[in-house]
Simulated scan of single mutants.
Amino acid sequence: MLSGMSIEVHELLVFPGPDGTAGNPLGVVLDGASVLRADRQGVAAELGYSETVFVDDAATGAITIFTPAVELPFAGHPTVGTAWLLAREKAPVDALRPPAGTVAVRYETDLTWVTARPEWTPKFDFRQLGSAAEVENYPLPTEGQQYVWAWIDEAAGIVRSRSFPVDMGIQEDEATGAAAVALVGKLGRRVEIHQGVGSVLIAGPTGDGAVELGGRTTAVRRLELAR
C-alpha cells in the first residue's frame, strides 16, 4: 500500500443480543487487496479490534483474519460479520475462504450462519464451572487462552461463558465464535451461549463433524484509517 493512502474500515458488532446491545466489535476492510500482507498485522494492531478482516476477493470469499497480535486461520465472529457485511454492501455469498478452509454461509432472517470445523479453532483452555455466578466472578487471567463456562439451563442447552485469549493480545473477548465451535465439538449438542456483557451465540453440530455457528450483526460506522 502506498504512503498517504487511507483504508476504509467498516466497524460492526457481531453477536449482539436480541435487543441489539453488546456484541463483539469487528473491523472489516472490504478492499483488503489494497493492503499489503506485510502491513495487515500493523493495521489490525492500530485499529485494536479483537479481530480485523481483510477481504481479498469478495466474489470468491477469500479473506484473512488478524488479532492485534497474530494472524488466525479461522475465527467465528469475523466470518459471521464479514458474511453479513458482504450481503449488505455487495452480494450474499455461499462461502468464505479464510486460510483454514471453506466456510459455508447461509442467511436466515436476521441471523447469519457459518459452518466450520472444531479442529480449525485455537487451543482454548476450557474450564467448566459450577454456576453462572462463578463465571461472572472469575478473575481476569494474565496469560493463556482460558474459556470459562457453566450451564444456565443444561436441559435447554443455555450456557453462560467468558473468554480470555490473552496470548492473542485480547484481555477478554466479548463473543468468541471459534470457542463456541470448539465447545460444541466437545459437547456434541446445540447450545445458546450468553457471553460477555450481553452477547448471544448459537451453535450446533451438523452431523459430519462440523459445527454451524450463527448470530446477529449490526453496523456501527465507517472510518478512514490514514497510512
Rank of each mutant, 00 (worst) to 15 (best):
T60D: 13
L86R: 15
P68W: 07
I63N: 03
T60N: 06
L86S: 13
E89V: 15
P78W: 03
L86M: 14
H77F: 06
R88A: 14
I65Y: 05
L86F: 12
R88G: 06
G61R: 11
G81T: 05
L72K: 09
H77N: 07
A87H: 10
P78I: 06
A69I: 01
A75D: 02
T64E: 09
A59P: 05
E71C: 10
F66P: 00
F74S: 03
G61L: 08
A69C: 05
W84L: 05
F74K: 05
A87R: 15
T60Q: 05
V80E: 04
T67W: 00
T60G: 06
W84Q: 03
L85F: 07
I65A: 12
L72Y: 04
H77P: 11
P78A: 07
T82N: 06
A75I: 02
L85M: 12
G61K: 11
T67E: 00
V70N: 07
A62Y: 01
L85H: 03
G61Y: 02
G81C: 10
F74Y: 13
T82K: 09
A75Q: 05
T82L: 03
A75M: 03
A75N: 04
T79N: 10
W84C: 07
A69Q: 14
V70I: 13
R88V: 10
A58R: 13
V80W: 04
I63T: 04
T67S: 11
R88W: 03
F74I: 04
P78L: 07
T67G: 01
V70Q: 06
G81V: 08
V70Y: 02
L72I: 12
P73E: 09
P73V: 12
I63D: 05
T79M: 00
E71F: 07
F66A: 10
A59K: 14
A58Q: 12
L72D: 08
E89W: 08
V80D: 02
L72P: 06
L85Q: 11
G76M: 04
P78R: 06
A62P: 01
I63H: 03
A62E: 14
P68L: 13
F66V: 00
A69L: 14
R88D: 13
V70W: 01
T67Y: 00
T64V: 14
E89H: 13
A83S: 15
F74R: 07
